[in-house]
Amino acid sequence: MERRNLLRAAVLGGSVAALGGSLWRGAAYAAPAQPGAGPYGALGSPNANGIRLPSGFTSRIIARSGQTVPGTSYTWHNAPDGGACYVDDGGGWIYVSNSEINPSGGASAVKFSAAGTVTAAYRILSGTRTNCAGGRTPWNTWLSCEEVSLGYVYETDPWGVNAAVRRDAMGRFKHEAAAADPVRQVVYLTEDETNGRFYRFVPTTWGDLSSGTLQVMVAGTATSGSFTWANIPDPDGSPTTTRTQVSGSKSFNGGEGCHYADNTVWFTTKGDNRVWQLNLTNNTYELAYDDSLVTSGTAPLTGVDNITGSASGDLFVAEDGGNMEICVITPNDVIAPFLRIDGQSGSEITGPAFSPDGRRLYFSSQRGTSGSSSGGITYEVTGPFRS
């Protein structure tokens, strides 16, 4: 999974550039990431928000479920989940966040000034169910995914101006996350089933998700090898589920987060605590992390969930459970905790996303200290992130 010595510029805000990346090294597969000293040092004591951070980092609470977002009149949604950031006018930015409740669900947004002050908050999607993760597009929309049987993908406007549109062509299944690949002009999709599949959607026209072809990854049963794509005959998933329509499609145990950068796509599977890596220039796949393959000490990452990347090529992976950490996987294949939330063992960390300048990391504790969907807390961490 070697990712060093590669061009590293983030896919952040509205600009598109290479981030991280991977080189295929002949027939040899790199060992998955192993625990080691992280690039930010040890975690400190819990701060006033109950978050353990490395030296030089601080946190603040942006919003709480059921309460008015400070500086606005908008009430923040319950069970905040997947999220992403967008460049706004005047040097500001927007953070969008899904709501993983059923019924209602949907998604909201918080707008920031160039100084980081909250200036507005508002609803961008309503009337949907269990909106878990999703993904941002290069044309600055947010794909919000329903994690229910025969769920849909909704394309939404982070500014809240244009009405959300249901994208039926992207298939009906238990959607989790999405990641856009501007090179191949496709969108990758994960499925949260114990025998879920990994998909890609090929739009008829890039930038327009109203029509296209849904495909599924076809590969062997091993944890590394080569793969191909096959068309899903019936994307609406009825009467035959999309995951059972193509013989030879590869099964994944609980697909979760998904992240694309520099001809590589990473996605997580919670059922076996793995981070998978697809090397798209070679059509090969391997494990970037597997807790059962940690060779010394205790596996630092369990309950793998949402995933994002930074300008340095670091991957940040959030835990659903575990000990409530976001862990970093470096380009040198070292994994270490980046932060930990104390006193919220009944929750999960969701929605990690960097501000366009890469200096702030947003995420939520979905159920907060209460352990209930009405107790969600959305945070911002600021500090010397690597560039």
Rank of each mutant, 00 (worst) to 15 (best):
N162H: 14
N162S: 14
N162I: 00
A163F: 03
A163C: 10
V165C: 04
G171D: 00
R172H: 06
R172P: 02
R172M: 05
F173K: 11
F173E: 06
K174T: 09
H175L: 10
E176W: 05
E176G: 09
E176Y: 06
A178C: 10
A179D: 06
A180Y: 10
A180D: 12
D181L: 00
P182L: 04
R184F: 02
R184E: 05
R184M: 07
Q185L: 02
V186R: 00
V187G: 08
Y188G: 06
T190M: 11
E191T: 04
E191W: 13
E191R: 11
D192V: 09
E193N: 04
T194Y: 14
N195K: 15
N195W: 12
G196E: 01
G196V: 05
G196S: 11
R197W: 13
F201N: 01
V202T: 01
P203K: 07
T204W: 00
W206G: 05
W206I: 02
W206N: 06
W206Q: 12
W206H: 13
W206T: 03
G207N: 03
G207P: 11
D208V: 08
L209H: 01
S210G: 10
G212H: 09
G212S: 08
T213R: 15
T213L: 03
Q215K: 12
M217C: 10
V218D: 12
V218R: 05
V218K: 06
V218S: 09
A219Y: 00
A219G: 08
T221R: 15
T221C: 05
A222W: 08
T223Y: 08
G225L: 13
S226D: 07
F227I: 06
T228I: 05
T228P: 03
W229T: 04
A230P: 00
N231M: 01
N231D: 13
N231I: 00
D234I: 03
P235T: 03
P235L: 14
G237Q: 09
S238K: 02
P239S: 08
T240P: 01
T240N: 05
T241D: 08
T241M: 02
T242H: 02
T242W: 04
R243T: 11
Q245T: 08
V246D: 09
S247I: 15
S247M: 13
S247D: 03
G248V: 11
S249D: 15
F252P: 15
F252H: 11
N253G: 06
E256R: 02
E256L: 04
E256Y: 03
E256M: 01
C258W: 02
Y260C: 05
Y260K: 15
Y260W: 14
A261C: 13
D262Q: 12
N263R: 01
N263H: 14
T264S: 14
V265M: 00
F267K: 12
F267L: 09
F267R: 09
T268P: 12
G271H: 04
N273R: 08
R274G: 09
R274K: 14
R274N: 11
W276L: 14
Q277I: 02
L278Y: 11
T281M: 09
T281E: 15
N282P: 01
N283F: 00
N283C: 07
T284F: 03
T284L: 03
T284V: 15
E286C: 03
E286K: 03
L287S: 09
A288Q: 15
